[in-house]
Design a protein around this nucleic acid. Structure first.
Length: 562
RNA sequence: UGGCCCAUGGUGUAAUUGGCAACACACCGGUUUUUGGUACCGACAUUCAAGGUUCGAGUCCUUGUGGGCCAACCA
C-alpha cells in the first residue's frame, strides 16, 4: 500500500510553518463559528470539512462556537439545525460554545479599554457616524465625542448597559484612527444598544458586542491557534490583531486569523440572505427543499455525508474566486451511490406491454442482482407476468440502427427476464400507443444458462409487472437557476434566473414491489434512470421518491446530435 | 483620489518552493457490458501581458491588464 502523497493546501502549509517555528503540536486548536441565523449550505461544508479535517489530521480539538451577538436575527431553530447538520456529516466538536458565554468577559475588557483611553461613547446618530467615516479614498473625521473624559465614558457606558438609553442612541467605539486606509480601523463600534431578547441570555443585556470585538477575543478565550475564515474578512484582520493587542497577556497562545476563498457552486446561490429570500418568498418549499444547496436540502435530495466530504476534498482550498461546476458535486454522489445503492426497477412514464405467448394468470419470480458493483449485495426476486409496463421512450414503431431499444419486428432483452420481440401495437383514436404486443422466447430466461439466454442482444430494458407494481410519486429535480452564476450579474437580480422547471412531479410512476418496504432516506438506483431516495413526505400509502441525480445518458447525447 | 487580495485548460485544484506543467470533473472519440450505467483506453494548456534576473521562471523583480473585497449600530 503506497500512501499517495497529497500536497498541503496553503493553510496546512501555514500550520506546518508555525509548528516548525516552535508552536507546540498540542496547542493546535480550531473552531467552526456559525452565526445561528440560517441553515448551513455546501459552502459551509467546505469550512466544516476544513476545520474538522484539520482537527482530525492533527488530533486537535475543534470547537463549535455559535457567533450569537445579534439577537435580532438569531434563533434557537437555527442552532438545532446547524448541530444536526454537522453531526450528520459525521464530525464531532470538542465543545459546544456560544459567543454569548463571553458577554461578561467582553464587557470587562471593554471597561479596561475605556480606562486606557482606547474607547469612548458616541451619542451621535448612525447617519452622522457614517458620514464621518469617510470613504475608501477619503479619510474620515473625528467624532466630537472622541475626547470625552474616561469618567464620563465609564458613566455613559454603564447607563447603556443598564438600559437607561433607547436603542440606537449610544454606541461604544474604539479609539483608533479615523484616517486609516482600512475602513475597519476608523473607530469601529464595539457595542450597540439592542432591546431584544437573546436566545440564551434572555434580557440580561441591553448592549451587545459587535462581531469584530467578539470574534478574536472569543478565539483568545478558547485558545484557538488558527482562526480560519473567508476572504471578505481579510481587511478585518488588522482590527482582529488590534483588539487582541489590548487584551493579550503575552504568556499564552495568541490566535491568528487566516482567510480562504468561499466555495461557490454553479447554477445556485450561496448567500444566506438570498437563500432566506428563496424560502420566504416561496420559490422553494423550505430550507430543506431538495433543490437548495443547503446541507439539509442535499440530505433530503439523497446526498450522503461521504459524497459531500469527498466534494470538499476534491474541490480543495485556495484564495481565488471560484465557481465550481455542480457536475463535480454530482460526480461525487454518483460515485458513492454506484457502489452502495441497490438496483431496482421503476417505470416513470409507463406504456403497457403484453406478452401474447405468455400464459394468462401465470407469474414467475425471477432472480435479480442487487448491485453488480458489490458482490455482497446479494439478490432478490422480482415478479414477472404477461402484462408489464415499460418506458414509453423505450419503444418506437420504427427507428434507425442506433436505437437499441424496442421497435416493431425487433428483439430486446428485458432486464433479468426474457428476450422479447415486438409484433404489433394498439392505438387509441388519437394515434397514441396504448399497448405493445410482443412475443417472448421462453428459453431465453436470464441466468438460465441456455444457448438462447446467452444470445447477444444489444438493448436491455427495465420493466415492472403491472399486476405486482406499486404506484409511486416521483419528484424530478433540475437546477434551481438557469444561469451558471445567477448572482454575478451587476444589472440583474438573481431571481430573474430562476428555472421555472426545476421540479417535475410524476404521480403515476410504477415501482417493483420490493420497494414497498423502503424507509425514508433509503437510496436506490432506478436502473437506467438515476439515483433516487425515499422522501420525508413518503408513507406506506403514498410512496414518494426524489431523484438525487440522473445516470449519465449517452443516448440523450446521440439523439441531441441528430 | 486610497488600501488589501487574486490571476495555471471549459471548471476546480497541483507542481518536491527556481528544474520535464500533474490530478479530478466536464467535453470529445473509442473498448467492454444482460443498466446507452459502471469500468477501461485515448484526445484536450507554450501558466493574463510585456519587460527583467538566471544555465534554467508558473514560481523571483518591475510595469501593465483583468477580477474580487473594504464606507451595516450584520456576521
Amino acid at each position: 500500500m503506497s500512501e499517495e502523497k497529497k500536497s498541503l493546501n496553503f493553510l496546512e502549509q501555514i500550520i506546518e510553518e508555525d509548528l516548525a517555528n516552535g508552536l507546540s503540536r498540542d496547542k493546535l486548536r480550531f473552531r467552526f463559528p456559525p452565526e445561528p441565523n440560517g441553515y448551513l449550505h455546501i459552502g459551509h461544508a467546505a469550512s466544516i470539512c476544513l476545520n474538522f479535517g484539520l482537527g482530525l489530521k492533527y488530533n486537535a480539538p475543534v470547537n463549535l462556537r455559535f457567533d450569537d451577538t445579534n439577537p435580532a436575527k438569531e434563533e434557537q431553530e437555527y442552532v438545532d439545525a446547524i448541530k444536526k447538520d454537522i453531526q450528520w456529516l459525521g464530525f464531532k466538536w470538542a465543545n459546544e460554545l456560544y459567543s454569548s458565554d463571553y458577554f461578561q468577559q467582553l464587557y470587562d475588557w471593554a471597561i479596561q479599554l475605556i480606562k486606557k483611553g482606547l474607547a469612548y461613547v458616541d451619542d451621535q446618530s448612525s447617519s452622522e457616524i457614517a458620514a464621518q467615516k469617510g470613504t475608501p479614498t477619503e479619510a474620515g473625521t473625528n467624532s466630537p465625542n472622541r475626547d470625552r473624559s474616561i469618567e464620563e465614558n465609564l458613566e455613559l457606558f454603564e447607563k447603556m448597559k443598564n438600559g437607561e438609553f433607547p436603542e440606537g442612541s449610544h454606541v461604544l467605539r474604539a479609539k483608533i484612527d479615523m484616517a486609516s486606509p482600512n475602513m475597519h480601523m476608523r473607530d469601529p463600534i464595539l457595542y450597540r444598544i439592542l432591546n431584544k431578547e437573546h436566545h440564551r441570555t434572555g434580557n440580561t443585556w441591553n448592549i451587545y458586542p459587535m462581531y469584530d470585538w467578539t470574534h478574536g477575543e472569543s478565539d483568545y478565550i478558547e485558545q484557538i491557534s488558527h482562526s480560519i475564515c473567508t476572504l471578505e474578512f481579510k481587511s478585518h484582520r488588522e482590527l482582529y490583531d488590534w483588539y487582541l493587542d489590548q487584551v493579550y497577556s503575552g504568556k499564552d497562545l495568541r490566535p491568528k486569523q487566516r482567510e480562504f476563498a468561499r466555495r461557490n457552486l454553479s447554477y445556485t446561490v450561496m448567500s444566506k440572505r438570498k437563500l432566506l429570500q428563496l424560502v420566504e418568498e416561496g420559490y422553494v418549499n423550505g430550507w430543506d427543499d431538495p433543490r437548495m444547496p443547503t446541507i439539509s436540502g442535499l440530505r433530503r435530495r439523497g446526498y450522503t455525508p461521504k459524497s459531500i466530504i469527498k466534494f470538499s476534498e476534491v474541490a480543495g482550498i485556495s484564495k481565488r474566486d471560484n465557481v465550481t461546476d455542480v457536475a463535480l458535486l454530482e460526480f461525487c454522489i454518483k460515485d458513492d451511490l454506484n457502489k452502495t445503492a441497490p438496483r431496482v426497477m421503476a417505470v416513470l412514464n409507463p406504456v403497457k406491454l403484453v406478452i401474447t405467448n405468455f400464459p394468462e394468470g401465470k407469474e414467475e419470480w425471477l432472480e435479480a442482482e442487487n448491485n453488480p458493483e458489490d458482490e455482497n449485495a446479494g439478490s432478490r426476486k422480482v415478479p414477472f407476468s404477461r402484462e408489464i409496463y415499460i418506458e414509453k421512450e423505450d419503444f418506437r414503431e420504427e427507428a434507425n440502427k442506433k436505437f437499441f431499444r424496442l421497435k416493431l419486428g425487433k428483439e430486446v432483452r428485458l432486464k433479468n427476464a426474457y428476450i422479447i420481440k415486438a409484433e404489433s401495437v394498439i392505438k387509441d383514436e388519437n394515434g397514441e400507443i396504448t399497448e405493445i404486443h410482443c412475443t417472448y422466447d421462453p428459453l431465453s430466461r436470464s441466468g438460465s444458462g441456455t444457448e438462447e439466454s446467452k444470445r447477444k442482444i444489444k438493448g436491455t430494458l427495465h420493466w415492472v409487472s403491472i399486476a405486482h407494481a406499486v404506484k409511486a410519486e416521483v419528484r424530478l429535480y433540475d437546477r434551481l437557476f438557469s444561469d451558471e452564476a445567477p448572482d454575478n450579474h451587476k444589472d440583474k437580480d438573481f431571481k430573474e434566473f430562476i428555472n421555472p422547471n426545476s421540479l417535475e412531479i410524476i404521480d403515476n410512476a410504477y415501482v417493483e414491489p420490493s420497494l414497498k418496504e423502503a424507509n425514508i432516506g433509503d437510496k436506490f438506483q432506478f436502473q437506467r434512470l438515476g439515483y433516487f431516495c425515499v422522501d420525508t413526505d413518503s408513507s406506506t400509502e403514498n410512496l414518494v421518491f426524489n431523484r438525487t441525480v440522473p445516470l449519465r445518458d449517452s443516448w440523450a447525447k446521440i439523439e441531441k446530435k441528430n
